[in-house]
């Protein structure tokens, strides 16, 4: 991706995030039931969306890397960047969810299907990141990681449904009542929520672009001598 595009992406993310913060804190009213805690609506769902999007793209990039005809190191860098961002956002989803759940549900954690599946997804992809640190040539790491990403991603729907059935077959929802969950989001709140989805998606895209560039430099640096790297750095106009 061109430097200019990445810069535009970054500034778009900053502007939309700032707008989300303004609308979320100043413009939108508090909720009748959840009061100020409803403002988590502009943080938690978009983060969850970004996390699932990140792991989905990572799995697709891993397939493209494993397929001999489409094998490029760029797909490995994309998968790595997506998993790192995905793990970060999944961690934030769990934390913001707990912060919202404590005052609203009266507990930081329930063994709800969605919560448990998200937490497991976090652990699954932490394993991917640990596996990347094992070592070996860039091609070995890339192939090993692509297989791990794929094997982990296949597990996500199985985990989701098994935890869902585990919960619903075992006991009905005791905290999230249908009356509470069925309430819609309207007006300024709905628009702010939509804006938050755009803002977090742009932030994710910017993070991925920057991380891919970093990975490209790292791989390039690993294959060049120090002198060659200094020459390349000077050519960019950066004092070495």
């Amino acid at each position: 991706m061109k430097k200019r595009t990445v810069t535009i992406l970054g500034w778009s993310a900053v502007i939309t995030l700032a707008a989300t913060a303004f609308f979320g804190i100043v413009v939108t009213p508090p909720d009748v039931l959840q009061r100020q805690y409803a403002r988590f609506l502009y943080l938690h769902p978009p983060m969850a969306w970004v996390a699932y999007l990140a792991f989905g793209i990572a799995a697709a990039a891993s397939i493209l890397y494993l397929w001999p005809r489409t094998r490029r190191m760029a797909f490995d860098a994309l998968a790595l960047a997506c998993v790192e961002s995905g793990v970060l956002f999944t961690g934030l989803v769990v934390v913001t969810g707990s912060m919202w759940a404590h005052p609203v549900w009266g507990t930081y954690w329930v063994w709800d299907a969605r919560l448990t599946a998200t937490a497991l997804m976090f652990v699954l992809f932490l394993g991917y990141l640990a596996l990347r640190r094992v070592g070996g040539s860039p091609e070995q790491v890339a192939k090993r990681s692509a297989i791990a990403a794929l094997v982990s991603f296949i597990d996500v729907p199985i985990v989701h449904f098994s935890v869902l059935w585990w919960n619903t077959l075992h006991q009905g929802p005791s905290v999230l009542t249908p009356g509470l969950s069925s309430r819609g989001v309207h007006g300024a709140m709905a628009w702010t929520m939509l804006l938050s989805f755009v803002a977090f998606t742009l932030s994710f895209a910017w993070m991925v672009a920057r991380r891919m560039e970093l990975e490209r430099l790292r791989l390039g640096g690993a294959s060049r001598t120090l002198e060659e790297q200094l020459v390349a750095r000077r050519a960019e106009g950066v004092p070495a």
């Binding site: 497991l120 652990v123 699954l124 640990a130 596996l131 985990v159």
Partner: peptide
Amino acid sequence: PMLVLPIVIP
């Protein structure tokens, strides 16, 4: 174990 145990939860 870090890789296998979470994946076999189902």
